[in-house]
Amino acid sequence: MPLVFFSNGSDRMKRMKPEATLSNSEDDRYETFVSCFAHHEPDLRRFIRSLLPTWTDTDEVLQQTAIVIWRKFDQYDPATNFMKWACVIARFESLAYRRKMARDRLVFREDVLELMADEGIEEIDSRRTEHEALEACLLAMPEKQRQFLTLAYTPGVKVKEMAEEAGSSAASFYMRLKRLRRQLMECMESKTNTAGAMP
């Protein structure tokens, strides 16, 4: 089975389908899987990210989770919540990954990871609401700040090198990033009625 998943949208994902070997019902099952997964991928990614220290870790576990979901897809009961089911798998994969990576100093201890995962599964809906609020906050943000964020979050951009090359200290670059991120957090929380927010 080709394992290049979702690296460029759902078209690419369809390639994981073993060609001309599936029966019609399997074909249907595959289509359901793709649409479920595509729909929930961003949520799943956010969930896994809350358990693991870096993007690389997150992507790796997400990929592994997708494989497992596909393998176990026939056990999934369409009457139940797909996302919760997927999260349980992602939780398990994260723990397995943690054991492999436990040398890394930034990996959560097992008890912390479990707690974060269990509570996180219950918060999936709020994550969606927050995501929408965040989009609104980003839109309301001054263009220059948005560009700065785009730059800071673009993979492959080495903030340190770029800041140094640009004659500004990496520290002030990170300070600004931190401030903007906190500002967005406040905005997002105020739009989702989190405690302490302005009315």
């Binding site: 990614r45 956010r46 809350s50 918060e123 994550r127 995501h131 993979p155 991120r181 957090m185 997002m188």
Partner: peptide, 22 residues
Amino acid sequence: MRRYLSLDTTLQSECNESGFAS
């Protein structure tokens, strides 16, 4: 922390071209 990490994820995936085209 989960909310903050989720915000971080959104920012990251919005800037990541290898994310879903849709």
